[in-house]
Write a protein that binds this DNA or RNA. Structure first.
Lengths: 165, 165
DNA sequence: ATAGTAACTATGATAATCATAGTGACAAGT
DNA sequence: ACTTGTCACTATGATTATCATAGTTACTAT
């Protein structure tokens, strides 16, 4: 086993503290990101995040134990599993989306992304570019899991291609 | 020095990845939480978070280096500093608030907080209980840094008192 | 029979964290 | 003057976690 020895979730009554026990871990965040983007397979996650297989394995077990991801067989011979966000996991959308918004506003040097955002999001329902809003600027609907379609900037898309190729 | 050797922020173009370099750390998250609650002093943060002084020191330096917190002298003899969120730091409000909302919905056993949330938030402008919304349910205004007044549940308030006493 | 793919596990070196103790600069009390 | 106390740290050594690399299992495809 290689689960980090962290405090029990119930070690504090503070809600931010409880979230931090789970989310205060770079590997967990990167894996969640990949799951939100539809990457469900172990190898795919390991390659894209750049994390070693041992860490990915340990974190997926942790996430599964917390009920944030579920493990589902997608074939029998040989037996293979994929990982999917549960409802509890999908509800982390707001956290990851807030992280994305913050980074778009603060984490890039001027011009680094060529003018636009590193990743542009379009509201599926109405086609509007949502910018960094939490409610669609076109139709006013609050944004949640599954509502958005991401379009990576050329730089980000090149980076991802380099990893999988 | 005890700064963790993490990848450069600019190691990825993915905005969630960039945020994760900073926020994917339990200590960083707990320190930010305390700063959002108005704790500005080293000792106060160290005691409330339960982190050792060395970790607090290392993370405050990291946060200062990233421009998320500023260091300000509050007295001269002896020279003492306090830490405050910068604009870049205050903009992390949405992330911490999303973490809080998720935890309120998923991280407590039924009845653990005695019926209500672990921490209740009131919209200062109109007095409405905001629940776990991102816009005030009373007046519709989107919620941001400084808009809310927190009221800890008895359990949480007892926990905090135990730390400082 | 050999190579390939997917999902891991094992191992050892390196790095981070924790618990505990100590330091420096001063204020206040005896 | 001397002890005690406060605040913001720094130092040290033991414990843990992480990273890089290699190996394993169970198959399929050629």
């Amino acid at each position: 086993m290689n689960l980090p020895k962290r405090a029990d979730l119930s070690d504090t009554f503070c809600p931010v503290g409880r979230s931090a026990e789970l989310l205060g871990d770079r590997a967990v965040l990167l894996i969640l990101r990949d799951l939100f983007f539809g990457r469900r397979r172990f190898e795919s996650i390991a390659v894209n995040t750049g994390l070693g297989p041992q860490l990915v394995s340990a974190r997926l077990k942790l996430l599964e134990g917390e009920g944030v991801v579920g493990r589902h067989a997608y074939q029998d011979r040989p037996l293979r599993h994929e990982y999917r966000l549960t409802a509890k996991g999908k509800d982390l959308f707001d956290v990851l989306y807030a992280m994305r918004n913050w980074a778009e506003q603060w984490a890039y040097a001027p011009g680094e992304t060529g003018g636009g955002p590193a990743m542009r999001y379009i509201h599926r329902a109405c086609g509007a570019d949502v910018g960094t809003s939490t409610a669609c600027p076109g139709c006013g609907v609050p944004l949640g899991y599954g509502d958005l379609k991401g379009e990576p900037s050329p730089a980000l898309s090149a980076e991802q291609a380099a990893k999988s190729g």
